[in-house]
């Protein structure tokens, strides 16, 4: 019962924190355009970084927006860590196994869930994914921790929290690895827990090794929103809302209404040339004449 309660608490907390964070970012005001090539939804131009602004009188042409191109770009970025591979191949050596290990474990959880509902084939698959996922995770986190401490380029930026995060992750992966190798049917135990989670079966009991792993993983879930490791959420916004947000302003749009409201806010910047007094709004300040 205690284990299941902790799982509910952890998942619930994470879900609330995740939604809260996503909402906090999404509800920030519209910003000025700050796109950065390449913008992959420019389907026929993205391969060289081109945009619709290359077109003569671009406003008379239909916009070419390809969600498929964005999807392919993001797939390479998220699954293969394309950016790290291209710009930091040494780090990719460990960052890729770490991240890919997580993806495999998410897939493992999905398979365990299906196995719990009477699809035994997924149980075997889950075990395979668990072995691979936990091993890659251990390799990745240990390697990253070593790099963070040993590489002088990274160590100047390494804080106690960076080490703690990686050690915490290593704990999660290593307890998982211990369980998957030490228990006869670890993924079966996980499947049991998942079924209990969804059916509120408070009688579920797990072997000690699996219990320790589940507690570690759930605790990490609680800790995660307090760290920069929530970057998988932020990344959606940095790419879609900033780098690739090339939407031109159109008269009568919701964006125009929002900008008008933002421009009516008072300005408090203190430098004399700004001429703000805490009452004048953005339009007042931007349209006041400079003394000649």
């Amino acid at each position: 019962m205690t284990l299941l309660a902790f799982c509910y608490l952890a998942v619930g907390f994470f879900a609330v924190a995740f939604v809260h964070r996503a909402w906090a970012i999404a509800s920030m005001p519209v910003h000025l355009r700050w796109e950065l090539a390449p913008v992959p939804h420019e389907a026929s131009k993205a391969h060289y970084g081109g945009s619709y602004l290359e077109e003569y009188e671009w406003w008379t042409k239909p916009r070419e927006k390809s969600l498929v191109s964005e999807g392919i770009y993001m797939f390479k970025e998220i699954v293969l860590l394309r950016g790290v591979w291209e710009h930091n191949p040494r780090m990719w050596t460990f960052s890729f196994p770490f991240h890919f290990g997580i993806y495999l474990l998410v897939a493992m959880a999905g398979c365990a869930f299906l196995a719990a509902w009477g699809l035994p084939l997924f149980g075997s698959l889950a075990r395979m994914l668990a072995i691979l996922g936990y091993c890659l995770g251990c390799l990745g986190t240990a390697g990253l921790l070593y790099m963070r401490l040993a590489d002088p380029k990274l160590s100047a930026f390494t804080t106690p929290a960076t080490c703690f995060n990686l050690l915490f992750l290593f704990l999660v992966f290593s307890t998982g690895a211990y369980s998957v190798f030490g228990l006869a049917d670890f993924t079966g135990e996980l499947a049991k827990l998942m079924k209990a989670f969804f059916t509120i079966d408070t009688t579920v009991a797990l072997p000690a090794a699996a219990r320790i792993h589940v507690v570690a993983a759930a605790a990490f879930l609680v800790y995660l929103p307090f760290t920069h490791m929530l970057h998988f959420l932020a990344k959606y916004f940095t790419y879609h809302e900033i780098r690739w947000n090339d939407e031109p302003m159109t008269a009568g749009s919701a964006m125009e209404a929002e900008v008008k409201a933002l421009l009516s806010q008072p300005v408090e910047w203190a430098a004399p040339h700004i001429g703000a007094d805490g009452k004048k709004n953005w339009v007042d300040v931007a349209t006041q004449e400079v003394q000649k």
């Binding site: 930091n88 780090m91 932020a234 300005v267």
Partner: peptide
């Protein structure tokens, strides 16, 4: 938001989500 709506969202994201991986160097 009042004083820097123009770049607030990109700035906050760059404040909070750098992994300090030095891939940009």
């Amino acid at each position: 938001k009042e004083n820097n709506w123009t770049f607030l969202q990109p700035l906050v994201l760059s404040l909070e989500y750098c992994a300090k991986c030095q891939s940009c160097n």
